[in-house]
Each structure stands twice: as C-alpha cells, then as structure tokens.
Amino acid sequence: MVLYIWRHPKPRTAQGRCIGQTDIAVDKRKLKRLANKIERFVRLHQLPRVIWVSPLQRSLKVGQILAQRGFQYQVAPELAEINFGVWDGCLWEQITQQEIDDWCNDFAHFACDKGESLHQLFDRVEGWMSARVIENNGKRNNKPTLVVGHAGWITAAKMIADGQNVPTRASEWPRSVKYQERSRLDY
C-alpha cells in the first residue's frame, strides 16, 4: 500500500507549547493552501478523491474543504497526534525538568498522567495502517491512501514502514516533517 501523508498547516498558538491532541485553530488561508496542494497532487497523479483525516481541526478542516470540492473524507481517531495528557497545551517551561528527564529516560514507555506512551502511539499507528492494507473483501489494498496527519503520527508511520522499532532514547527520534509537507510511505 502507498500512503501519501501531508502534515497539517501550522496552528496559530502552538509556539512554545506541548501540543499533541490539544485542538487548536489554524488560519483558514493555510487550510485552503494545503487543500489546494492536495487537490493539485491528486489531479496530476489521477488518484482517488478520498482522504483520511484526524478529528483534530487542524487536520479535519482540510478534509472538510476538500469535501466541498468533491472529495470524500474519512475521520479516524487513530490518526490523532500523540496524547500528552496533562502536558497537552502547556507551555514547555511549565513542565518540570524532572518530568522531562523521566520521559527521556524511558522514552518508549513513559506516559505522563492521562497521556499515551510512544509505544502506544506506534501500536495505534501500526493498527490503522494494517487495517488499510486489507480491504473488506480480504484482498490487499493496492490503491493509494491519502492522509492529513500530525508530526508525531507521521514520524511513527515512517519508522514503521521502514521496519524500525520504537525509539528507546529521545536522541533516536528523527526530525519532524515540516508543516504542509508531503511524505510517501510504502507499507
């Protein structure tokens, strides 16, 4: 299966904050700009006009704009960014150094209060990707799948597609994809 994944546009109030599943707004022009990019790409490559989005508005609203242009959009909670629990939405400076150290010392399995570990994120991403590989009739899905996703989710998906394990150290986590950047994964 081929996945084309675009990272959502840059949110308005993300600067200096721990943002996972905090549902923050994006400028409408940036949403339309990404929808335009996706629409041109789909037209150029004659791809299906179906796109998967997370329920977070920075992804969801791109799907809604595309739906006004004849696309079908599918909302999947599994596509949401990692859940940082009580950290989500906080300024990074509000999170204690000890908490950050605890996270870095158990990078794969640490989850702050009410949050999700990196291992849990990888399980969620792999589960969604595996479900897309097999269609309802039990046959392998060879159609390209289009997604508007989030940086952590995309990074996990890339690592899974490359056969990599969940990183055990923070230094093993790759640089995030840029806002509105498209990635291709073969899974």
Rank of each mutant, 00 (worst) to 15 (best):
P174A: 06
H119S: 15
E78V: 03
I65N: 05
G163E: 04
E181S: 13
K10H: 11
F122A: 08
L47I: 05
R40W: 11
V177E: 14
N141A: 08
Q74K: 15
Y187P: 09
V166H: 00
I5T: 07
G152L: 01
L66V: 05
C112M: 15
S130M: 09
I5L: 10
G152W: 00
D106M: 09
R43I: 08
N83S: 13
R12P: 04
N136W: 02
A131S: 14
K30Y: 08
G70N: 02
C112S: 08
G127A: 15
G20T: 04
Q120A: 15
R40Y: 13
I134V: 14
Q46N: 14
T22H: 11
R58P: 11
R12E: 12
Y73P: 01
F107S: 02
Y73C: 10
I134M: 13
A157M: 04
K28S: 10
V2D: 14
V53F: 06
A156E: 04
P167A: 05
Q72I: 06
G16P: 04
M159P: 01
Y73D: 03
I160Q: 02
L60Y: 14
F71R: 03
E116Q: 12
Q15I: 02
Q97E: 15
E39T: 05
E116M: 06
P55Y: 08
D123G: 10
I65W: 02
L3V: 07
V62K: 01
R29W: 07
D162P: 00
R175Q: 11
D162K: 13
H109Y: 12
N136D: 10
P77V: 06
